[in-house]
Simulated scan of single mutants.
Amino acid sequence: WTLDSVGGAISIVIPLDQQQQAVRDNVVRDVVYFLLITLLIGAVVYAVTTIFVFRPLNRMKLAFAEMGEGQLVVSLDDTNAAKEVSRLIERFNSTAAELHTIYGHLEEQVESRTDDLRKANTALERQRDTLEHLNTELAKETQFKSDLLSMVNHELRTPLTSIITFAQISREACPPDRESERHSWEEIEKNSQILLAMINDMLDIARSDAGSIRTACEPMDLGDIVCAVKGTMTPLAQKYSVAFCTQVSSDVPLVNGDFEKTQRMLENLASNAIKFTPDGGTVELSINVDESDGSVRMRMADDGIGIAPEDQERIFERFFQVDSTSTRKYNGSGLGLALVREYAAVQGFSVSVESELGRGSIFVISIPSGLIVG
């Protein structure tokens, strides 16, 4: 025998189909086995989770629903619950018990407060009835006082008018060489005029309280009103050595309003301005049209003692006096500015003031464009 000699041959035949079938059978058997194991494990996990987790949580869900409906007496059993879920159930039971206790106290407090409110309402109703009775009596007394004041004022105006008339006649009849007698009649006439003006103011206040102020609404020329005011106020300005000047713009139109009350408004403003302006001062009444909104503005400006900021709203209150010393010096009832605001309100006007102590004051009456004629 030499190297690479052939002494014979062996043939081995392996059936591949059988081997492949065995492999397939093994794979199928293993897959089925693992599927069964997986299903079994999943079933066990599902059963355990359902018993120890899902069911307790579902009971909590139902318990929360009951609490939402107002049933606070809820207690859950933590049997067959997982450890963490059991702790959660215990917390839930504790919270429900606390809420029940709080709600019980709250109901008691609500009942107590309701009873208190019921008693308070009863007391308020009694007080309301008492106040209504007092208001009725007060209204009667107020009406009586207003009627009495109106009657007294009406009765006083007649003799005062006679006194003023006779004083004027006597003053004019005095010969030139009897200056002291003329001066006496002038004082009588002047003080009678002051008293008559105060009576007129009080009468108008009484009418205002009674709701019987009537105003006319007719076209009026503000230039005519200014001329009338100037004729009335010039003697007063000369007495106090104050320059009183007027100025009416040429483009001021006719406006609807009450001639007499508008004149009274300007006379009251001018009288205050003159009386509270020192000797040598100036009071100016000007009327012009505000180009911004088309309103007509009646402006009374002076360089008098001025008004403190905290008093600029109160000066329109009845009987309010900024300074009692000035009041005693210049006389006055404290009704002039109150009437100015009331006369302005009933006519649809507005009144404003700008002032600084020691620098003078500016009163402005604004007539809206809707009251302009034409």
Score class of each variant (00 low, 15 high):
Pro219Arg: 11
Val27Cys: 09
Leu148Gly: 04
Gln321Met: 13
Glu179Met: 04
Ile164Tyr: 03
Glu107Arg: 15
Ala345Gln: 10
Ala139Glu: 15
Arg171Leu: 07
Asn200Asp: 01
Ala47Arg: 11
Phe320Val: 12
Pro253Glu: 01
Gly332Met: 00
Val73Glu: 12
Ala63Ile: 04
Ala9Asp: 01
Val28Arg: 10
Ala97Phe: 03
Asn93Ile: 02
Glu187Arg: 00
Arg24Met: 12
Glu107Trp: 13
Ala237Pro: 01
Ile274Ser: 04
Asn135Trp: 02
Ser286Trp: 00
Glu69Arg: 08
Val45Glu: 03
Val322Lys: 05
Ile367Met: 11
Leu266Phe: 06
Gln127Lys: 15
Glu317Ser: 03
Thr325Asp: 15
Ser292Pro: 02
Asp25Ser: 09
Leu106Trp: 09
Leu106Phe: 10
Leu357Val: 13
Glu108Leu: 11
Leu156Trp: 06
Ser146Asn: 12
Arg113Val: 14
Val373Asn: 11
Gln18Tyr: 15
Met300Asp: 14
Phe244Thr: 00
Leu222Cys: 09
Asn256Thr: 11
Phe244Asn: 00
Ala81Gln: 08
Ser369Val: 09
Val322Asn: 05
Ala243Gly: 04
Ser184Tyr: 03
Gln20Tyr: 15
Asp17Cys: 15
Tyr46His: 13
Gln193Pro: 03
Glu132Ala: 13
Val13Lys: 14
Pro368Ser: 07
Phe259Arg: 14
Val110Lys: 10
Ser352Cys: 05
Arg126Val: 01
Pro15Ala: 15
Arg24Phe: 12
Gly257Asn: 05
Asp209Gln: 07
Leu160Cys: 06
Asn93Ser: 05
Arg87Leu: 04
Leu16Arg: 15
Arg118Met: 04
Val346Tyr: 11
Ser146Arg: 07
Ser192Gln: 06
Gly374Thr: 08
Glu189Arg: 07
Met151Gly: 11
Leu35Trp: 13
Arg55Gly: 02
Tyr330Gln: 13
His183Met: 08
Leu371Tyr: 15
Val73Phe: 08
Val31Thr: 06
Ser170Arg: 12
Glu90Cys: 01
Gly336Pro: 06
Thr79Gly: 04
Asn331Ser: 12
Gln193Val: 06
Phe349Ser: 13
Thr142Asn: 13
Leu72Tyr: 05
Ser350Lys: 02
Leu117Val: 12
Glu137Ala: 14
Leu16Pro: 15
Asn58Ala: 09
Thr325Gly: 15
Asn135Tyr: 03
Ser292Lys: 07
Ser86Ile: 00
Gln312Arg: 10
Leu285Met: 04
Arg157Gly: 01
Ser295Ala: 07
Leu160Ala: 09
Val248Trp: 01
Arg359Trp: 07
Gln238Thr: 05
Glu354Arg: 09
Asn26Thr: 12
Gln321His: 14
Phe92Ala: 06
Glu181Leu: 00
